[in-house]
Design a protein around this nucleic acid. Structure first.
Length: 876
RNA sequence: GCGGACGUGGCGAAACUGGUAGACGCAAGGGACUUAAAAUCCCUCGGGCAUAGCUCAUACGGGUUCGACCCCCGUCGUCCGCACCA
């Protein structure tokens, strides 16, 4: 009988249509079953989906389908992170409206995602650029404003003078705008900020509770928040050395114990004292300007020389009024950390040491190793930063640094200058407040109005949404909202006099900081339905790229807290489980070299293998190409494989199965043509095995046999079921794939016997049950194939709706097991024995083995180690 | 510089809590079927000696243990994150 090859082009759209028609994946909030929320990071609608999306959404879909089978009420939604610069860039370049561009891209990508057969609840879909969505975001903003979680302040920003816009630090490359190439300026602008620092401590300590997050991500967030404990010390200025009005300088230090090693003080170029001095002294002014310019380029910091300028100002040592210390302006001191001023202890800090050498300042060692000799210990080229014992520090001598820290802290805290203590213990964070103002069109308008009389007035909720105008032009650089003829002119909501709208829009990271909450009730006219949000959140399993380890995931954690403070949710942590998946990478192909190098896309390349050689040739001309390194798929290297092409030639199931195979999901997976073909072979093989045996399986009536081959088939089926279940629980998709391959290999023989009529009724019955289990195991990964097989087996209903089978413990645990027998730690024999055999019985059986007898040669063993059900080791 | 992760066949990788190292897939080689090809099926596949079995082998050098890819110490290498944070 001729078996037709499985045809995904026919089967896949058919099942997708049926799932949609029967609303199989639409989620009901009122469903009483236990809830499970699985979410993948939503895509930016850049134009087309790429293989990274395929991998990300396939993993999430496996979890969703698996959890659904396990009886959960699963929420698995999809949306679009749709505001952002690329739409405006496209508008400027191609004269297409950002809105048109974005929604067209969404339409394309939506149909691409649908062709993957993802079990998504499309009824909850939204884009962040939908008025419906950003309306609610404006409501949130107003609530945050009322709660004091939003404020305005002057802030230094990277300003691109050509494009007339603010750039993020990442968009400044070597001091120039990434688009315009213009030299970036530092500008002071009034910007809106979210008070994320209010939650710094909480965001830090709560990381400990996120035990289903990768340790790596938690560590990155810990470092980003950057907590330090120290002391702010006020140093008095030596009379007559500083301009009027400056009597002291406050310094933040984490090492007050090293105070007797101080040999200079350094302040930032933007420190008030530095500014004051600069205004009266051109030399100082020039130096400060230079420091500011250098600060523009992040990359330059790596190599920038530590430089300083002696201001002539002197401060008095807190413990010795006769000890004067010079004050420098230095290019490495940051105004926005601590107090913008430091004291330098060259012996205990490499940077301070370099500075001291350069400007010939004293180097006094104050900490030495515990076993050191105070008389001879010197710091010359390398600062000593380790623990140890205090020296050259008067009354601190002999203490450990931690004790010296406490002594100085309590000492100076009790003294006062004027009415306040000379020093205070302080906790500092590296984390800055989140600046969200963007001088852009394609973003959520910040809903406030500037009135000359009433100041900054939030737009009343009844007047929301503030809708982006459609009639804007992109012919000129800058923010189109600024030059719109009418949009910005409104009346003040308080005094009704003419006023101006805020024309800045919000950072797009705001949009993605709460979308997961919106999915729980996207129909509400408030940002959330707190009841629904609390029922679904936190997201049980969030899946996305490691590149969002800090920004998006930290902002979302802050936002959830802010939403709790304003009554929109009752929880603090948005994501209970987080999984960061690896990238899809591909070999690169090219011809030519250097500047002439031309990259060739894999679709035009064929690979030849043999005799240990691997060659790449042009498909059409046969020209040999250079095979380059394996890299992330990117347009510039052209090593991109289009998911549409793969789905068209192999089907979605093959693509899905391939991205789950081979590599652990948190590591990069290498896309190879032969690997895809392997996955496709598997899909065809399953179909062939099922359809060849189908006529016989359809008529299986007997009970599965409890011995011989039928038992073996049942055992492997249930063992695989148990193992794959565990793999899915731990997101070990590559292991699940391997086990399913093994299972399939084991079924091939019995099934071919079934197909050719050589199997007895009990084997046929066992095979039928095993095949059904196989189909259910593959259903989360290759759902269309599973439906097709499920139907072929004569079952009614859809595979997608079947409950996960329970494995039979009796079939998983065998009565008789094979234990490896080692002699002196090396495997020498196998022992077949009852599973529950006791120590004595095993020892006796082992000593009876030929290999053991000959090794012992009549002697008795020194020891026999028996690990029940695992291994035996005979020590001779 | 600071912090972290990783290192296993030709390749991607398995190996539970310290218990048979290399499952599974890819590639390769050989064979069957076929006029032929595709598809499919069977065999081999870490190194060495030898083909039964022995021996070496999880980056390298030590250690702990009856037993180490796994734990400890040291060395080398790769990747990632942060980076003037006082």
């Amino acid at each position: 009988m001729a078996i037709e090859r499985y045809n995904p082009r026919d089967a896949e759209p058919r099942w997708q249509a049926r799932w949609a028609a029967e609303n199989v994946f639409t989620t009901d909030n009122k469903d009483p079953r236990e809830k499970y929320y699985v979410l993948e990071m939503f895509p930016y609608p850049s134009g087309r989906i790429h293989m990274g999306h395929v991998r990300n959404y396939t993993m999430g879909d496996v979890v969703a389908r698996y959890k659904r089978a396990r009886g959960y009420n699963v929420l698995h939604p999809m949306g679009w992170d749709a505001f952002g610069m690329p739409a405006e860039n496209a508008a400027m370049k191609n004269n297409i409206h950002p809105k048109t561009w974005t929604y067209e891209n969404i339409a394309t990508m939506r149909s691409q995602l649908k062709s993957m057969g993802l079990s998504l609840d499309w009824s909850r879909e939204f884009a962040t650029c939908d008025v419906e969505y950003y309306h609610r975001q404006q409501q949130l903003f107003v609530d945050f404003l009322e709660k004091g979680l939003v404020y305005r302040k002057n802030s230094k920003v990277n300003w691109d003078p050509e494009d007339m816009t603010v750039l993020a630090n990442e968009q400044v490359i070597d001091g120039r705008g990434w688009r315009s190439g213009a030299l970036v300026e530092q500008r002071e602008l009034t910007q809106w900020f979210f008070k994320i620092t209010d939650y710094a401590e909480d965001l830090l300590t709560a990381l400990d509770s996120l035990d289903q997050w990768p340790e790596k991500v938690r560590l990155m967030q810990r470092n980003w928040i950057g907590r330090s404990e120290g002391l702010t010390i006020r140093w008095q200025i030596a009379p007559g050395t500083a301009p009027q009005g400056f009597g002291e300088i406050a310094v933040y230090t984490t090492r007050p114990d090293t105070i007797f090693g101080a040999s200079f003080m350094a302040i930032a170029a933007d420190h008030p004292l530095a500014r004051q001095l600069a205004s009266a002294n051109p030399e100082i002014e020039a130096f400060c300007d230079e420091c500011r310019r250098a600060g523009t380029s992040l990359a330059a910091l790596e190599t920038a020389e530590k430089r300083g300028l002696d201001t002539g100002v002197r401060v008095l040592h807190p413990y010795d009024k006769s000890w004067e210390i010079p004050v420098y302006i230095a290019n490495f001191v940051l105004m926005d950390y601590g107090t913008g001023a430091i004291f330098g202890c060259p012996s205990g800090d490499q940077r301070d040491l370099d500075f001291a050498h350069k400007y010939d300042l004293p180097v006094v060692p104050v900490v030495m190793p515990a076993d050191g000799d105070a008389a001879s210990f010197k710091v010359t080229d390398e600062a000593y930063i380790g623990d140890g014992v205090m020296i050259n520090s008067r009354f601190l001598d002999g203490m450990v640094p931690a004790a010296a820290f406490d002594k100085v802290a309590s000492d100076l805290s009790e003294r006062s200058i004027g009415n306040s203590p000379q020093a205070e213990r302080r906790v500092n964070y590296r984390l800055r407040d989140w600046g969200i103002s963007r001088q852009r069109y394609w973003g959520c308008p910040i809903p406030v109005i500037h009135c000359d009389d009433c100041g900054v007035v939030p737009v009343p909720k009844a007047d929301l949404p503030v809708i982006l105008p459609d009639d804007v032009s992109f012919e000129l650089p800058g923010n189109p909202l600024d030059r719109h003829p009418t949009w910005r002119h409104v009346n003040c909501p308080i005094c009704a006099k003419p006023a101006r709208r805020e024309t800045d829009t919000m950072d797009t990271f705001v949009d993605s900081s709460w979308y997961f909450a919106r999915f729980t009730a996207p129909w509400e006219d408030t940002p959330t339905d707190p009841q629904a949000a609390n029922a679904w959140l936190p997201v049980n399993q969030y899946i996305g790229g490691i590149e969002h380890a800090i920004l998006h995931l930290l902002y979302s954690r802050f936002f959830t807290r802010a939403m709790k403070a304003t009554g929109h949710v009752g929880i603090e942590e948005p994501f209970k489980g987080l999984f960061t998946q690896g990238m899809v990478v591909h070999e690169t192909y090219s011809r030519g070299a250097g500047a002439q190098r031309e990259w060739i896309t894999p679709a035009e390349v064929k690979i030849e293998e043999g005799d240990g050689q691997r060659r790449a040739r042009m498909l059409d001309t046969g020209e040999e190409l250079a095979i380059g390194s394996i890299e992330k798929m990117s347009k510039s290297k052209k090593n991109v494989v289009d998911p549409d092409d793969i789905i068209a030639s192999f089907g979605a199931d093959t693509a899905r199965f391939f991205v789950l195979s081979d590599s652990p999901p948190d590591r990069d997976v290498i896309w190879t043509e032969s690997g895809v073909e392997g996955a496709h072979r598997f899909v065809q093989r399953i179909w062939r095995l099922v359809s060849e045996a189908q006529p016989a399986l359809l008529h299986a009536t007997a009970k599965a046999g409890e011995d011989g081959e039928a038992l073996a088939v049942s055992q492997i089926a249930h063992k695989t079921l148990k193992a794959v279940q565990g793999d899915f629980d731990r997101l070990g998709f590559n292991k699940a794939v391997a086990r399913i391959y093994e299972f399939t290999n084991a079924l091939a023989q019995p099934l071919s016997r079934v197909a050719s009529g050589q199997a007895d009724a009990s084997l046929v019955a066992a095979c039928r049950q095993a095949v059904e289990i196989l189909v259910q195991l593959i259903a989360p990964m290759t759902p269309h194939l599973a439906e097709e097989c499920w139907m072929a087996l004569g079952n009614s209903g859809m595979a997608a709706l079947q409950a996960w089978p329970d494995y039979d413990e009796a079939l998983v645990a065998e009565d008789v097991i094979v234990m490896p027998v080692q002699i002196n730690g090396k495997k020498r024999a196998d022992l077949t024995i009852e599973r529950d055999a006791d120590q004595t019985r095993i020892e006796a059986a082992v000593l009876d083995l030929e290999q053991v007898k000959s090794a012992l040669d009549g002697k008795s063993p020194r020891r026999i180690i028996v690990v029940p059900q695992r291994i035996v080791n005979v020590v001779i």
